[in-house]
Design a protein around this nucleic acid. Structure first.
Length: 116
DNA sequence: ATTCTGACAGCAA
DNA sequence: TTTGCTGCCAGAA
């Protein structure tokens, strides 16, 4: 059937959702890396914006695996409790200290490199 | 249409 | 090192 406006399929939000769901267990990524992979590059804020809307998404989005380029859990406050995000990450082997990921570079997952 | 905000990133001081 | 400003794109009022 003809869907005239199938724009949502290539919408920025949808891409962010897919890519975020593609992040493997125990791995993390950054907003900038995702934005860059999507082609926007400097639109890292849009990634965060999309993840903010991920609450409306039926699928569970592992947004806790997405942090800023510093490995800082900037969005932890959006997981209900402030400790939920780091709890999830630590459960996956991510070491967090003072809201910052210690082994960020070690666990970093770059969609442009790892995925392709 | 205009303005503000946002889970960021980069750079200057 | 931290702080602050700017650029960026999209959505809400």
């Amino acid at each position: 059937m003809p869907q005239l406006k199938q724009k949502a399929n290539e919408d920025f939000f949808s891409k962010v959702y897919e890519l975020t769901k593609c992040i493997p267990y125990g791995r993390i990524s950054s907003y900038g890396a995702i934005a860059r992979y999507l082609g926007s590059g400097k639109s890292a804020r849009m990634v965060g914006w999309a993840l903010n809307a991920s609450h409306s998404n039926r699928e569970f989005i592992p947004a806790h695996r997405v942090v800023n380029h510093n490995g800082l859990l900037t969005g932890k406050h959006h997981f209900g409790n402030s400790t939920t995000m780091e709890q999830l990450l630590e459960n996956e082997g991510i070491i967090i200290e003072n809201d910052r990921i210690i082994n960020f570079k070690e666990k970093f997952w770059d969609p442009g490199t790892e995925l392709k």
